[in-house]
Design a protein around this nucleic acid. Structure first.
Lengths: 187, 187, 187, 187
DNA sequence: AATGAATGAGATTTCATTCAT
DNA sequence: TATGAATGAAATCTCATTCAT
């Protein structure tokens, strides 16, 4: 079960090399070359690009899960929701493969699935508490919260990713989550 | 000046064929084949995939511009803003290459640049009126509004694109745009 | 029979444009474009690249024929041979399509064939007189003389085409033509 | 260091296939197809056509170098020169890519450069000895000798390549090399 | 388990020639 | 006749994945 030492070294080198590249444009060939490792070695460790992205995201995913647990523990449901969104957004913006892993239907690594399950459970709690307390729109669901944060991440990225833009879009999102449905203005 | 009829026919066939394919995964080779046109012909008309995406988006872009002009004409600035966001989102969700064209720094076609300029000018007016009327966050800018709508589009897409999801994210976004900055709850 | 004035103008423009390009790498497309003329127009005037090369070479070919006639008229057969080789080489080096036309089995233009026939007849005379006078190797034939000059042209070209190199290779060739067979030194 | 057996096999198959084609009209695509090898494999081994031509010529180049060394070792400088020209011409006529490799300014393969350097050094010696012994024109240089042989190769080729033609042009060239400058007969 | 050459599919590009206008 | 877009074949190149060693 314990990996051979040289295998572990290869794996680590591959991950290190991958961190220098944009997560949305990884080529296993390229990564292997930069890692000073054979192409097939990279494929042995990570059969698909997604498997590699998962491995890269795993640490951040664990942090996300911890964050969600802390958000559950907040006495004030509103503050819990805000904390989750604010710090979750920061995590998603810091590492560019996280969104893909969060949104994937199936995971390559069981460990990743386990962490995601924990995370989703905690998010469910945070959302349920916020809705129950009237601190969030009544039609908010855990899935919707996740999608919304992904949308905000996207908005901030296309805006260039600066801190000012992040603050603006975060503030608008938090306000939008909280408020009840606005008076209809549509046609 | 006027394009030759056969050139126009080729162009139209290429565009028709491209409409059957996802805008984010177009291959000129494939498009040419489906259009019953030589590969070289496709490359002559559209030197890059982006040029083709632009051409596909041009009609929607014109509709977007019309919409923005109507939004300017709304007597109530708030209703103008809501109209622009709601119907703009619908346009962006209907044709999947629109966002890429809207966000591109440079355009291939001068016609596209012209339409985008008109659109941006109208958006500027809508935002300025809404802010002046106190109907939108004071730090809202035209660029931020565009990025926000792109974020909402993204959220709805990852949610599966259903009408319910669209309504939820739209409502949250409109509410978030309107409200002043929320009481700080961050760390 | 008289060409229409505009056709004549097209033809002239094509020839002018072709003169700016290396004769061994002409593309009709390219020539047409530089001439400011439609591609098909170029093809109408010159169905093949060789036809164009012939037309470009025609004037030089006529000069070559005149030269050969003058060489025939030389009282001294040796001087006639030398004159033909020396000035013929100069002509061949000056315009880079001449060799191809000289060596072609068939010609596109009857006019070119006529000039070549005159030229070949004169060369035959020059060679016959030189051989008869003992001023050239007895096994020299008109064809061999032509091939030899083409070989010298090639040597000068790969040497860079300078005047010194031309003089060296010319001198060696003239000496080689004149001498009887050398004492055998081969295996 | 040692090439992998399968890579060596591919390389050999590509070279074998290329030998069936005219060296002055090689297309990597075609060669790969005939060799029963993927196109990409052909491009990996030989990034350009010239690299392939070099590899094809390498064996002949080595023979050429041996020949030049033997020519240096001839006690009689004149016989050394004749041997080099006669047998060098035979080599150049046998394999049609040799001239291109000999005349190229830069080589793809360092091995080829090394052989060419040896060859050129030996030619230099042969020429120097012949000139010193009064067995060749005083203005003969190693470069001129190379260009002259290329010119003779060209003449023989355009003459059809037969043995008679080869003997004629060879005899003329050897005589031309040997003789001092002829009495001037030009204008 | 590690290696990197081989593979084949297909993207892009070039070009000579044809054809509708 | 003139035009230049269209054409298709083929050359070059890229890439993700597989396979022999």
């Amino acid at each position: 079960m314990t990996p051979r030492p040289d295998a572990a070294r290869s794996r680590a080198r591959i991950l290190d090399a991958a961190r220098d590249l944009p997560a949305d444009d990884l080529r296993l060939n390229d990564v292997a070359h930069r890692a000073g490792v054979g192409v097939a070695t990279a494929y042995r460790h990570f059969p698909t690009v997604h498997a590699l992205v998962e491995a890269l995201a795993e640490a951040d995913l664990a942090r996300y899960s911890d964050l969600a647990r802390r958000a559950c523990a907040e006495p004030d449901p509103l503050r819990g929701l805000d904390l989750l969104v604010r710090d979750g957004l920061a995590l998603q913006l810091a590492g560019d493969g996280l969104q893909a892993v969060l949104l994937a239907d199936r995971d390559t690594s069981p460990a990743v699935t386990a962490i995601k399950d924990e995370l989703l459970a905690a998010v469910e709690t945070v959302v349920a508490r916020a809705v129950a307390a009237g601190a969030a729109r009544p039609d908010l669901t855990p899935a919707r919260l996740r999608h919304l944060v992904c949308g905000v991440e996207h908005a901030v990225r296309v805006a260039g990713g600066g801190a000012d833009e992040r603050e603006f879009h975060l503030a608008a999102a938090l306000a939008g989550l909280r408020a009840g449905p606005p008076a209809a203005t549509g046609r």
